[in-house]
């Protein structure tokens, strides 16, 4: 096992896949000469050249659509969005083109493309640059969506995404890029559609994805000190969603806390909570708890922006409510 950062893990995944398959190209703003706005593509231009690592103008709709076109004509593009906030300019190309071309063509077209970039809150960026937009993609049939929470999954999920014959949206996190963790030395694929039990437990199930998995694990450690054994499920893949792992866990614990750093309405977390309430009605000993961001645009002020988001403390409080242990 090597210790590497989330950023390095993503870079390794692209490096290996570009090595494997000449049809894989990377395009986006600043991905080539600048090594990526967040340095995720460092060194790739030098290794693969200007025909495979392409700086685009600042035209999200244009280069996202260009990637879709290249995908239906036999390539496997990786489109980097500097952040998912800017991907809103490309929403039409993802929702109406990438996700629909197979369907509208009666199965005749394939769209093997990866859309990736940082999603979710960062720090001191106010409301246009600190948004968790998973729902925008998860809502859409025809897309797959993954959200790695650690370097090993960042590596293995991105490799799977690049090899996938369907469009895959990868939700990275700016706040995770420098996090370090163990990544297997040998080439490893993490399958899309399979959740992980990040920590085993018996009293309450905490379901999270992306960066909040860290908070969920912190919360589980705090709960342990109070004699509560929390199981943490890292969804890893949001579409498809591994309901089996969630439901098996909740059947054992009888209590569930769902965490999502998005706004509450029409969110992935709200959907997961709904599914648990329907599928595990007979097992539940308490209402499903839901910890989301506050339903407000992100403020610039640091104390305010932290208070807006899920935290270990909020998750602990939710778990205690589910266990009827709140003070």
């Amino acid at each position: 096992m090597a210790i590497m950062s989330y950023r390095e893990a993503l870079n390794r995944a692209m490096d290996e896949e570009m090595e494997h398959d000449a049809s894989v190209v990377l395009m986006g703003e600043e991905v080539a000469e600048y090594d990526g706005a967040y340095k995720v593509s460092r060194g790739l231009l030098e290794k693969f050249g200007t025909e495979r690592v392409l700086d685009t103008p600042i035209t999200e709709l244009g280069f996202t659509g260009l990637g879709v076109g290249a995908a239906i004509a036999g390539m496997r593009p990786i489109v980097e969005w500097m952040t998912h906030n800017f991907a809103l300019l490309a929403l039409d190309q993802v929702v109406n083109e990438a996700a629909k071309l197979r369907h509208m063509s009666g199965g005749r077209l394939s769209v093997p493309i990866v859309f990736r970039g940082p999603n979710g809150p960062a720090e001191y960026l106010s409301s246009q640059h600190s948004q968790a937009l998973a729902s925008y993609w998860v809502h859409v049939p025809g897309l797959k969506v993954v959200a790695p929470s650690n370097p090993a999954d960042a590596y293995g999920l991105l490799k799977s995404a690049i090899r996938d014959d369907d469009p895959v949206v990868v939700l990275e996190s700016e706040m995770l890029y420098s996090d370090k963790g163990e990544v297997p030395d040998e080439e490893t694929l993490v399958p899309i559609g399979k959740a992980a039990i990040a920590r085993a437990g018996t009293d309450v199930t905490i379901v999270a994805f992306g960066r909040p998995v860290k908070y969920a694990l912190e919360a589980a450690a705090l709960l342990e000190k109070r004699g509560v054994s929390a199981e943490v499920i890292d969804l890893r893949s949001l579409r498809p969603l591994d309901e089996g792992t969630i439901m098996e866990s909740v059947a054992r614990t009888g209590r569930a806390v769902v965490v999502d750093e998005s706004w509450p309405a029409a969110s992935v977390g709200a959907y997961v909570a709904h599914r648990i309430a329907v599928e595990r009605f007979d097992s539940l000993d308490a209402p499903v708890e839901f910890v989301s961001s506050e339903d407000v645009p992100m403020p610039y002020n640091h104390a305010l922006e932290l208070a807006v988001q899920p935290s270990a403390g909020k998750i602990v409080a939710a778990a205690l409510r589910a266990l009827y242990l709140e003070e």
């Binding site: 659509g65 879709v68 290249a70 995908a71 004509a73 036999g74 390539m75």
Partner: peptide, 15 residues
């Protein structure tokens, strides 16, 4: 919307 897609098809042809 087909215009950027077409330009991408041309990108693949060139590549």
């Amino acid at each position: 919307a087909q215009i950027p897609v077409a330009v991408g098809v041309a990108f693949a042809q060139k590549h």
